[in-house]
Design a protein around this nucleic acid. Structure first.
Lengths: 349, 349
DNA sequence: CTTGCTACG
DNA sequence: CGTATCAAG
């Protein structure tokens, strides 16, 4: 049989799909990567292309991590109770916010993840990548005791999308950032409360081959303008999947991913730095300046989560004015249900 | 929120997908079908469109059928041994052929259906709807003890496709029927043996809304020419998913499907009649002229298989010259693994 | 690897 | 209802 163009196209695509995801291709043996020596790695017997059994930069890094129990928001090991930690001036948390990139509401619900909502008992939830048109959201997703708000992708059904759940009814809720070209993918929901704004966002991924990095930079600029506009009125809690690992400490494999993989280019990192320079604070890093191996995302590929080969892509970014109110900001690393884990913020307001 | 065109399109598509498949839409309440009264049918509580809980012509017909045990080719209830039945002149079977539309080789293998091959122990297998490019067929599918031949769709990957397994090496194997416009979808494999040809085929479905009925008629004409050409040289065993139920006895719901659903239009049925008029014989119907409720296909929808609401779409069609050799032609109705069941033919050659 | 969409049956 | 593709991450 002849080599048909489709076969070649498929093979290349398959390679890219499996081996180029947040991985940073290692250069070795020309284009393909040789597998790390591994006791259970059998040699090829036949003529299959070497790509088949190769490993990514992520997979290749062995990280001795204590086995983590899996759960769907009901882990016995996760303490969902309000934190004991207090503000610097000794006040206890009275506001909990949770943000989770759920990678598809319908699949997430099938896994029983809705139980996370009651288990965590946060005052506000931000869900990203709901991947569902607003008019198709099942009513069970509109959990009792919460006002829920849904934003969706206007053109591509089943793409991106965000939701906001709030125990208290916000004074006002807006969708998007008021810039048409950025408001077609349902990426932002803003809820206004008496003393603050909560901005839940799913920041655009720069894509394979960084095809959308230019757009991302436009987004970052316009989004910063939006945030500063809010911050001029009331303090802001900005959270969600920001699709950037800020510093080398924020991902397992900085070397191999730097300026290669979406989420760890200088442009994206600088965008985040710029945000911090405008009076905002990365709450987790503020509390834990040197804490390593804390991630909120692990690619599904190559068993990266079990090996804790991850990225910190999800953040609570606070207006400086809110830093004195900060009790806790951390990751629910062992809550399963998506390639991201939920993150939580606790404030004394 | 406004009704967006995509939502409407999706809703209509969803309706068609679930409720129009080999069903024959019943006219009632305007466009939608009211459910048959059913003890467990709850009334609508909310404003959902009535389509959601409707039943098809297939589903609405309750058929009291003894429960059938499910298996993957390893049923204790199915006797795979060579038949006791003999030819009219008393000769025993010494050739077994099996044909099965497997609806996707990869899924079929995952269900463990490869075990059917050894269990049935046929001399020749024809698989249809392999849905796999020939160069992606896993080597385990190329079962030991058989020569295997693979035909695939040249343009649409993962569509249609056929395979032929043979214990004995055929004198010659050809793909397609020698007409370019019909040979792009991998639908036909012909194996030549000393005394006969075996033609395995997956005849084109006329499609939802009969969009491909015209093409189907061109196919039927050209295919008949092809078969007659072979028959002029040696007797032919023609088998597979012929995508037609010939007479009313060949499907559960002839009334509701007649001239509405692909597989039971006058054009398709006449095509089959024409074939029989050219010196070919429907081996099953020849042996069992009045046997009802014998089907080889049941839509996955509405639990039709459990209710035996099916169609006889799979056939062994023989050159008249082979009728004296016929011992058995029947369906393996309780072999699971696809929306079709395997059919088998036993000859004394 | 996983989700959701689409085409097709 | 179910399989396989595709785009996206």
């Amino acid at each position: 049989m002849q080599y048909r163009p489709t076969s070649i196209k498929l093979a290349v695509r398959s390679f890219l799909r499996v081996y180029a995801d947040r991985a940073g291709i290692q250069q070795n043996q020309g284009f393909f990567i040789m597998p790390k020596r591994k006791s259970d790695t059998k040699l090829q017997e036949d003529g299959e292309p070497a790509s088949k059994k190769k490993v990514t930069a992520e997979e290749g890094t062995k990280v001795p991590v204590e086995d983590k129990k899996v759960d769907n928001g009901t882990s016995a090991e996760t303490n969902f109770a309000p934190t004991d930690k207090k503000t610097p001036d000794g006040r206890s948390s009275n506001l909990k916010v949770s943000a989770w990139n759920i990678a598809g509401l319908r699949a997430w619900m099938k896994k029983g993840c809705l139980s996370y909502i009651s288990k965590e008992d946060a005052d506000i939830y931000i869900l990203q990548e709901t991947k569902i048109p607003s008019d198709k959201v099942p009513k069970e997703a509109k959990v009792d005791g919460y006002f829920t708000y849904w934003n969706d992708s206007k053109e591509k059904a089943g793409y991106a999308g965000t939701a906001l759940y709030s125990k208290e009814k916000p004074i006002n809720v807006t969708f998007g950032i008021g810039v048409d070209k950025h408001d077609k993918e349902g990426r932002v929901i803003t809820a206004e409360y008496e003393k603050y704004y909560v901005v839940g966002a799913y920041i655009p991924n720069s894509g394979r081959g960084l095809v959308r990095l230019d757009y991302r930079q436009e987004w970052d600029a316009d989004f910063l303008t939006f945030l500063k506009g809010l911050d001029a009125k009331k303090p802001v809690i900005f959270c969600g999947d920001l699709n950037v690992a800020h510093q080398e400490i924020d991902l397992k494999n900085p070397k191999t991913n730097k300026n290669k993989t979406a989420g760890f280019t200088d442009q994206e990192r600088d965008g985040f730095t710029k945000l911090l320079n405008e009076g905002f604070v990365d709450s987790f890093r503020h509390l834990y300046p040197d804490k390593k191996d804390m991630y909120s995302y692990w690619t599904y590929m190559g068993n990266c989560r079990a090996k804790n080969v991850g990225w910190r892509l999800d953040y609570f970014v606070l207006s400086k004015a809110l830093v004195p109110n900060l009790c806790e900001s951390t990751m629910r690393s062992n809550v399963m249900g998506s390639d991201h884990c939920p993150i939580i913020l606790e404030l004394a307001i």
